[in-house]
Amino acid sequence: MEALDIPLTGFALLYLLLLLPLYLLRRLKLGLGREVLISVVRMSVQLFLVGIYLKYLFAVNSLLLNVLWIMVIMVVANLNILKKAGLAVTKLFWPSLAGVACGTLVVLGIFLLLVVRPTPLYDARYMIPLAGMLLGNCMNGNILSLERFYSGLRKDESTFLTYLLMGATLKEAVHPFMREAIRSSLAPTIASMMTIGIVSLPGMMTGQILGGSFPLVAIKYQIMIMIGIFSSLVISMVASLYLSLPFAFDSMLMLKDEIFAAKKKG
């Protein structure tokens, strides 16, 4: 069973659909029109380019190319994490990248080696989309956890100092801040697992069904991906936070100001 291709006229109509939300945004004077148009154009161009690249990647199906692709997207995701979290790329690039790699690669390895077991194990059709899905979610979670953790410490420096004065080690003193950052960053993922299938039909499952898979197969993949996302998210958050500690505190165990990205003037 093959998915129906979308004809060119239908595809063009898809963009016309945007006129309605753009009209509503304009009526509300939100001033988002330009931003929406740029993001739609960027999204379309990026996806087409990636589509062309993936077609090539699937045809060649080389371990080296697949690994290289995953490394590139991990670096891009990592840069985005630090930028959005307001942290200095020069100070925390490596620990944050290591955290993202831990979360993504451990779960991806389990998926390929033990759960899906494609032949070959590095089959681009499985390796690339699964890595992309895990990484995309790790990225969003890590932005939240790193931002909340370090801004929480900066805001409540006195409490942190009080813990050190009570004899806490660095790990003990940051623990309450870490707990709060992880708890609040995981909340959206947990909420989405609670309502999935009732309120929302996930994109991957819908895509698979439209692509011709049986619903039960699609559901199995969806459950796999949800458990994977949750696991990789927790692993990458915990790893990034712990691995960044030696880079973020000085010899007096105080938070270094230079780990925060300099604010743009004006």
Partner: peptide, 15 residues
């Protein structure tokens, strides 16, 4: 040094 000293602020944080 930190073992010897207590620091009390205006609104101590209770976690």
């Amino acid at each position: 040094i930190r073992q010897e000293i207590a620091y009390i602020s205006q609104e101590p944080g209770m976690s």
